[in-house]
Design a protein around this nucleic acid. Structure first.
Lengths: 121, 121
DNA sequence: ATGGAAATGACAATCATTTCCATTCTTGGT
DNA sequence: ACCAAGAATGGAAATGATTGTCATTTCCAT
């Protein structure tokens, strides 16, 4: 499980944020790395189990992954043109952590996204 | 779109919590209601759009739905058993509004969800 | 070198969700 | 009541992500 894991982790570093299994597979292919899609899925699953990688789901249900410890940020997206701004979410982190703890939850994570119309739209 | 909507809403009331489209379809079939799976999906989409129904995702990516009160709130969901707690999000509302405005956005909305492991899991 | 366990990858299978399209209801105007 | 236009419906096929299968390859300790 070692060679593939290395490749997948490198791909995750290269993209620098969230990426789906399919995207990672493409990235690896583009970089002349020979690796099967099946192996990408299996490797990601292993990495998630050993907590080296976070998994979450897009609205359409597709799974996206990122390295644990990556700096965590959120997105501000224009509903009309798709323009995206990265936002630091200090307030949200605290809110999520606190709300979770108050209800007896552990290993608390969260997703959040802001949308609206940007100045040009 | 009205007859189907009624049936789907009744099914949602009957199950009393979260249910997937497929489960709702089964429930309706068991109760002699004639309705197609396609229509269940379409109707759920409509109900989600008009904010009568909440949608979220299980760990495996399957969509689950439930009736939603009209007050704006967020969810704290157990990754393992699906237990859900409704959370008031005062901090988040302000954060979203502020972040959007600082970047020149208008008509600002947001999504947010907290997940973790509940006390029994 | 060798045997066995773990890893790999091409391909097929699965499963929720969507798309297509033909058929059936509604509805407004006459 | 009648009829055409459009909306709603549902079954079948398509889609797309993910998982299972299984033959082959790589690793590693002996």
């Amino acid at each position: 499980m070692s060679k593939s894991a290395t490749k997948v982790l490198q791909a995750l570093e290269r993209v620098g944020g969230f990426a789906s299994a399919q995207e990672l597979h493409l990235v690896l292919k583009r970089n002349q790395e020979s690796i099967g899609l099946t192996t990408v899925y299996r490797t990601l699953q292993n990495l998630v189990n050993e907590k080296s990688v976070d998994i979450l789901r897009k609205d359409d249900g597709e799974a996206i992954y990122r390295l644990c410890g990556d700096s965590h940020h959120h997105h501000l997206v224009c509903k009309n043109c798709g323009k995206t701004v990265e936002i630091e979410g200090g307030a949200i982190e605290k809110w999520a952590q606190k709300s979770g703890e108050e209800n007896g939850f552990r290993e608390i994570g969260h997703t959040a996204e802001i949308f609206g119309l940007c100045s040009e739209c």
